[in-house]
Amino acid sequence: MHELGVVFHVIDQIEELAEENNVTHVNSVTLQIGTVTGIIPDYLIDCWNWAVSKHDNMTDCRLIIEKIEAITHCKDCKQNYNTIIYGKKCPYCQSDNTYLLQGNEFMIKEMEVI
């Protein structure tokens, strides 16, 4: 359900950009999605394929997803580690004094258009 709402937001933004750039058809859209956004790419693609069919200038528009790995930085020992495996606690020094460097991105990277 959440993925559908997100798809509507993406399509709204794409439609605005298409108008600004005199686009007649959008062939593909590339998104960059962090692995801790909670977005499930397979669901997103299902919602996407349904939603673009309702837009004349986006029929059969492909959705390309690039994943961004989640990395957390430890402020105490200054090391970086994989967020998905270790979460908020630093595996090197066990500190909680950490923050997410990357992995919660949800970006429209580019679109291929005619």
Binding site: H9, Q13, M107, I108, K109, M111
Partner: peptide
């Protein structure tokens, strides 16, 4: 051949709502 181009967007999906 139709003129295919790439538009770089680099925009957060939540940006418009924010």
């Amino acid at each position: 051949m139709e003129n295919i181009r790439i538009i770089e967007v680099k925009q957060s999906v939540f940006a418009a709502n924010d």
